[in-house]
């Protein structure tokens, strides 16, 4: 269990003098905040800002606190904020286990054991040595989720992670992702334009214009 808290204080992002968004919120352990808005409203910029790779053409102000500590001045790799993209983005040159091992903190104990157990847990037991290129869309999404969890983040960002899945699979993966994140006690921000995602997340909804 993580039990972290993610807070955005007066986060403003603007592009070319035009303000895109302003967000104030607090996401508690296991809570999922949904950010909705049309394309161009700056949803993805908000996630890029929190994760630490907002392009310098954007101007930003405000602070992002994880457990009270401002992470804005940290490099992306030190923020311990996990991110799921639209695509699973499993590294194509590493095996499934290689992808998971890449994500685990250097000092993690019994890595191989944790990997087998994690794969077992998401219904992919024995997939350790598989080539990620041979996985189905749903399997790849599961591995991407497991990879994120094994990196032991303090907070999680979801960038429309279900939008490329077909309807049936979307439901299944969505349930799995939300269950796992709640169970891990991770504060999560979900960016989506799908109303069903927001309802399923069950948390507060912040709408951008």
């Amino acid at each position: 269990m993580s039990n972290s808290i993610l807070e955005l204080n007066n986060v403003r992002i603007s592009l070319g003098g035009k303000q895109l968004l302003e967000v104030n919120c607090r996401v508690g352990p296991g809570e999922i905040l949904t950010v909705m808005g049309p394309s161009g409203s700056g949803k993805s910029s908000l996630l890029a800002y929190i994760a630490g790779f907002l392009a310098p053409v954007f101007k930003s102000s405000g602070s992002v606190l994880v457990n009270g500590e401002n992470i804005c001045s940290l490099a992306a790799e030190r923020r311990r904020v996990g991110l799921l993209f639209q695509d699973p983005l499993l590294f194509p040159h590493l095996s499934v286990a290689g992808n998971l091992r890449f994500a685990m903190p250097r000092n993690a104990q019994q890595k191989s054991h944790a990997i087998s157990e994690g794969l077992d847990d998401i219904g992919l037991a024995g997939f350790d040595d598989r080539d990620p290129g041979t996985l189905s869309g749903g399997q790849a999404s599961r591995v991407a989720l497991l990879r994120l969890l094994l990196s032991a983040p303090n907070a999680v960002l979801l960038d429309e992670p279900f939008s490329k899945l077909d309807t049936q699979l979307r439901e299944e993966i969505r349930t799995l992702v939300f269950d796992k994140l709640r169970a891990s006690g991770l504060p999560t921000i979900l960016v989506t334009h799908d109303q069903a995602d927001a309802e399923s997340a069950g948390g507060a909804i912040h709408t951008l214009r």
């Binding site: 994760a51 630490g52 790779f53 490099a75 992306a76 790799e77 030190r78 923020r79 311990r80 904020v81 996990g82 991110l83 993209f85 695509d87 983005l89 590294f91 890449f102 994500a103 903190p105 990879r147 994120l148 990196s151 983040p153 960002l157």
Partner: peptide
């Protein structure tokens, strides 16, 4: 995004 994924997983610039 390959580098971005690697950073969110805690990999330094050198490692990625």
């Amino acid at each position: 995004r390959w580098t971005q994924v690697a950073s969110t997983l805690g990999a330094s610039q050198l490692k990625s």
